[in-house]
Structures are given as structure tokens and as C-alpha cells.
């Protein structure tokens, strides 16, 4: 597991600007969040299913990385099946649980909706290189460079933290407290990790400042990040998925704004 070296490949998706991936996935997410109905979610999921062929992931990797979503979606659906807003015929009732016509429909909509929102979000994230994302956020999205770069530098420390964590674990066994009290030990280890990481962070801040980081004056960028035609196409695809899902749902009369 290495955060700083994501899945790499030669397909078009790897050359897309991370900002475009964020935008495309956000557009789909926002459109689908507004309503809870099986038509908009189903339509979006169907189109996405086709688009995933170009996700740059082998089928095996695709299912491995999205496995959690495939587990979580039915779980969320099951919760809604039992505790969803009741309406229509009651099929089953026990304590707080109530399965009704209404909750069955909501449960189906929930499963589809979780899949349709989360799958593209996960799939697009898998192929993002953090350095490229930071370049894009600072140069394309114009977020403050100091914060974006600070965050990126912090991110690089992840692999060191994992090594620290391993040593902390072995040291606890060596010192005679490794047999029991797992929760307490984990808390203690987390605290030690936090101390070590703040120390490291302070040193890293000094090193960065010494290299002119945060100095007044205009910063230049060694790597250029900008949106190209492919990125525009990706965002357009996002709009297309969102528009198709919403229209289909409105036209068929299933559009069901949450909370209404």
C-alpha cells in the first residue's frame, strides 16, 4: 500500500487532470443526491456501467477497489428496508422494524443510489496521483498554494508513519505489554504516533521554509497543470450522466426530492 504511488497505466484516464475527475464525480453526486428514486439512480448506474470500461482498471482491480461499496450499498438498503419511511401495505413488523411497500421501494432506490454515487467517486480516485492533484488544485482550481503544498508534503510522510507504527507495535511486545488490552494499546500507539508525527512535521516545516516556502513573492510551477480537451470531455460526460438521470426520472414521474 503506497499512497504516493497510485495505480499507474497508459490509458487515457491516467492523463486526465485530477481536477476534472473531481468535478465530474461531483456533478454526478450532486444530481443524484437531490432525489431518492430508483429511476434516476438506475439510469445513472447503467450509463456509468458502460463508462467504467474506460476506467483504466482491470475487472479484478475494479472489483477489489470497489468491494467496500458493493458491501455497503446493500447494507444501507437493508437499514432503509427495516427503518425506512413507512407507506402502503405492511409486510413485516417487529419492535422498531417495519417493512412496507414504501420502504421496499426506498430500499431499492438506496442501493442503486449508493452505487451510482460512490462507484464513480472511488474509480476516479484510484487513478489520481497526489502530486498531480496538488498541482491541479493550486494551478487550475486556484486553491491557496501554501496549503495545498503543505498538505502534499504531509502526505508524503504516510509511508514513514506506517514504519513508525510497525516499530511501535514490536516495541510494545518487547516491553511486556503486548499480550492483552488491545484497545488501550492501540490508543497508546496512536498517541505515540501523533507525537512522532508532529515532531517530524515541525522539522519538515523548517526544511521547507529554508527552501523559500511561504516567502513573499510570486511562486512558479515546475510542472504545468491545465485542463485540456480530454478533461472537458470527462466533465461533459459527468453532465451527460447527471442530465440523463434527472430527465428520465422527472419524465417518468419518479423524481422524489429528499425531505419533501
Amino acid at each position: 500500500m503506497s499512497v504516493m504511488t497510485p495505480v499507474a497505466g497508459r490509458q487515457a484516464v491516467y492523463r486526465l487532470n485530477p481536477v476534472a475527475k473531481v468535478v465530474a464525480s461531483a456533478i454526478i453526486g450532486i444530481a443524484l443526491v437531490i432525489s431518492i428514486d430508483w429511476v434516476s439512480a438506475g439510469v445513472a448506474l447503467a450509463i456509468e456501467g458502460v463508462l467504467f470500461l474506460w476506467s483504466g482498471l482491470s475487472p479484478r482491480r475494479f472489483f477489489l477497489r470497489t468491494l467496500a461499496v458493493w458491501i455497503a450499498a446493500p447494507l444501507a438498503g437493508f437499514t432503509i428496508l427495516l427503518y425506512g419511511r413507512p407507506s402502503g401495505a405492511v409486510h413485516f413488523q417487529f419492535l422498531f422494524m417495519q417493512v412496507t411497500d414504501g420502504s421496499i421501494e426506498l430500499a431499492i432506490a438506496t442501493v442503486l443510489r449508493v452505487l451510482a454515487i460512490a462507484l464513480p467517486a472511488v474509480v476516479l480516485f484510484v487513478t489520481i496521483d497526489p502530486t498531480d492533484l496538488a498541482d491541479g488544485l493550486a494551478q487550475v482550481a486556484k486553491l491557496p498554494a501554501r496549503f495545498v503544498l503543505g498538505a502534499l508534503a504531509g502526505l508524503r510522510l504516510v509511508s514513514l508513519f506506517l514504519e513508525d507504527w510497525r516499530s511501535l507495535e514490536l516495541a510494545r511486545r518487547a516491553r511486556g505489554v503486548g499480550d492483552s488490552g488491545r484497545i488501550r494499546r492501540l490508543l497508546g500507539q496512536s498517541f505515540a504516533l501523533l507525537v512522532l508525527s508532529i515532531r517530524r512535521g515541525s522539522k519538515l516545516a523548517t526544511a521547507m521554509e529554508a527552501r523559500g516556502f511561504g516567502a513573499p513573492g510570486k511562486r512558479t510551477w515546475a510542472r504545468e497543470s491545465r485542463l485540456g480537451r480530454g478533461d472537458a470531455a470527462l466533465i461533459a460526460l459527468g453532465v451527460l450522466v447527471a442530465a440523463a438521470a434527472v430527465s428520465a426520472s422527472v419524465i417518468t414521474g419518479h423524481w422524489n426530492v429528499i425531505g419533501a
Partner: peptide, 29 residues
């Protein structure tokens, strides 16, 4: 005004806690 050390240490804390979140993701269900 944020100093460089504020930004970097805030980032590092965010990263470290992010790891804890991830660990929690694996067990919370």
C-alpha cells in the same frame, strides 16, 4: 495569519488522523 509550521503540522496531523480513520473504516461495521 498561518505560519509555515502551522500549515505543515496541521497537514501532518490531518494525515496521521486520516490513517486512524482508515483503520476505523475497516472495523466499524
Amino acid at each position: 495569519k498561518w505560519r509555515v509550521v502551522d500549515i505543515v503540522v496541521a497537514s501532518v496531523v490531518g494525515v496521521a488522523i486520516g490513517l486512524v480513520y482508515f483503520a476505523w473504516d475497516q472495523v466499524y461495521v
